[in-house]
Design a protein around this nucleic acid. Sequence first.
DNA 1: TTAACACTTACAGTTGTTGTAAGGTTGGTA
DNA 2: TACCAACCTTACAACAACTGTAAGTGTTAA
Lengths: 221, 221
Amino acid sequence: MVKITIVEDDSLMREELMDILQKAGYEVMAIADFHDVVAQIATLAPDLVLLDVNLPEQSGFEICKSLKLKGIGPILILTSRDKLQDELHGLHLGADDYLTKPCNRDRLLARIQNLLRRFEGQPSLIDGGSFSLDPNTFTLYKGSQSLLLSANEGRILLALVQHRPEIVSKSTLSKILWGTDQYIDENALQVNLTRLRKTLRQLNLEDQIETIRGKGYRLRG
Amino acid sequence: MVKITIVEDDSLMREELMDILQKAGYEVMAIADFHDVVAQIATLAPDLVLLDVNLPEQSGFEICKSLKLKGIGPILILTSRDKLQDELHGLHLGADDYLTKPCNRDRLLARIQNLLRRFEGQPSLIDGGSFSLDPNTFTLYKGSQSLLLSANEGRILLALVQHRPEIVSKSTLSKILWGTDQYIDENALQVNLTRLRKTLRQLNLEDQIETIRGKGYRLRG
DNA sequence: TTAACACTTACAGTTGTTGTAAGGTTGGTA
DNA sequence: TACCAACCTTACAACAACTGTAAGTGTTAA
């Protein structure tokens, strides 16, 4: 069941939206308390957020920005009038789509469907700053390019991405590769790092991995 | 340099769009010949397509659909009036955003920026209906799951996806795998199909490939 | 200058991918 | 029901990719 969270202070409008969405088969939750909206939404973990920009406590734009920073899903912004400034502002803050009130039922549902489709089929890639990594198949993406990492390359890079931008010790990497940090084969690890760097060179990402002498490795950014 | 391709038959409008985009720092290319637009765009490999739906030769919607099937995106659709039906139709065909003409300069640029940002980190996956395929690494995605196909498996599935839902003949597949349809090794192809199906079973996608006796294979949907 | 640390390259064992071969199953037709 | 062509499955060996080992060459900081 697809979950949608509505953030709208006008109770009449809110009821109408809930009604439309529920009849369309969505599981709808509305925010009633406008303190700390971002935390509430994060807890609800909806598949889509319907966000009015005119709110009592906090600007909808602020909320939009915070949600995007937390990597929370598609956001459809609602605004009362066709304010161009509002629209531009919202888009720049990372809103995924924009709709003016009062809104046509079919248009609303079409926009929502479109957003959900866009995000649903998307794999859950891990953000590495200037690239993304599929943690499952170790497919590496940069812009529209993609390439495959071998199992060892992928496991090392994944560890680095997950700890970014902190240092990952050799013993940690050793544990990841061979399940133990007891008897580290320093050289084997080294060879695998060389191989990873060589592969990353294909996407001009070689200098992303930084060596911290005596400590380990880390990803820039 | 970000490349944008404009598909617009009204030369006045086209010039204006080109001017706006060039002044904004984009590398702009316009389609002049409206035969086989999709192939032209594929060759240009733009970072974004600005597509008018009212075209002489072929419907903009058809082009939109074909582009999406080829994994080319993002697509910003232009339409003359605020036709709700056009908008809904476009969104359902996978357009990524929608704008009415005549369009405000700032709004156009904001929409484009937004689309580019959205797609920047994103890999260009090809939509296979209930799954997506990275045409480069042959990584297969379904929901949040992903797995890797071998080279042969990937090439077969890619061909099927690109022709969906039409039938792909054995000789076509043979040409894709071995560069020739002259001396088809029916059995070798068959074995590769069995292997692909077996792999797809892991994501419950096995029955996606349908056998058309005497003709070839096709993807459902 | 030196010793510890970091990096590179080549080689061989292992694993995964692919075409071949041989036999089984299915579906339309008489 | 019996037949045949089309389709499917499995096992095997040749081939390519990945990985650890070994034996070196650079680099850094005291």
